[in-house]
Amino acid sequence: MIEIHNVSKWFGDFRVLTDVNEMIDRGRTVVICGPSGSGKSTLLRCVNGLEPYQEGEIIVDGISLSDSRTNLYSLRRKIGMVFQRFELYPHMPVLRNITLAPMKVLKKSKKEAEKKAMELLERVGIKEKVDAYPANLSGGQQQRVAIARSLAMEPSYMLFDEPTSALDPEMINEVLDVMIDLAKSGMTMIVVTHEMGFAREVADEIIFMDEGRIVERGTDEDFFKNPKSDRTKAFLSQILV
C-alpha cells in the first residue's frame, strides 16, 4: 500500500506540491491527469524517492521514504517506473536492458534472468527484437521494452509517467494494451496520462491535479459525468473534445 500524507514540495521558492493526500491499495490503478506543470510527474518521482519532498510523508508498505534509515535503493526494487521518453540504455541490446537489474540487484544467474526476460518480451509482444538496440526500435516498441525492463524486477507497484505522450498516434494503443493487461492482472499502478479511454477502462480512481494540488478525485463514472470544479470541467472539455 502506498500512503501519501500531506506532502508538500518546493523547488527553491516555487511550491510544486501542496498538501497532497492519497492512499493506494494493492491491486488498484490510479490515474493522475492535469495540465502540464501541475506537479503530476513530480509527485510520481516523490513516490519512489527520485525527488525529495520537504513536508508530509510518503509510506510504501509501511516504510517511510523520508526516514533517514530507509534504503531508497532497495525500496525502489519493488516500485517499477516507466518514463515518457522510454530511457532505455542505448548501448545495450534489448535483452541486456532487461536482464541488467535482475542480475546485478537480485543476483539472478544469467540463464534465469534471460528466461524471465524472454517471457516478458513475449508478454509485451516483441520477442523477435531481443537482440536489437533501442535506436533500431520504434517508439512503441521501446516503451514496451521499458515496461518489460521494469517488470523484470517483479515489482509490487508500477509508476507510469506519461508513457504514451512521446509516441506517434498509431503506436499508442500497442502500449496501452500492455498497460491494460497489466492493470487487469492485478498490478498496483499509478499512471500519469491524458488517455481518458485508458482511464475509463481500468482506473479505480482518477485524480485531477492543478498547481500542485489535488483539485478533484473520483471513480471513473462520476469523474467524467459530474466534475465538480470548474477547472476540471475546463480541462476535461479540452482533452475529451
Binding site: L50, Y73, R76, G80, M81, Q84, A101, V105, R149
Partner: peptide
Amino acid sequence: DLINAAYSTGLTYTQTARYV
C-alpha cells in the same frame, strides 16, 4: 531520466555509474 530509470530498477549509485 535515464539515470532515474536505472535507479528505479533498484540499481545503486555505483552500479548505475559502472553499467550505465
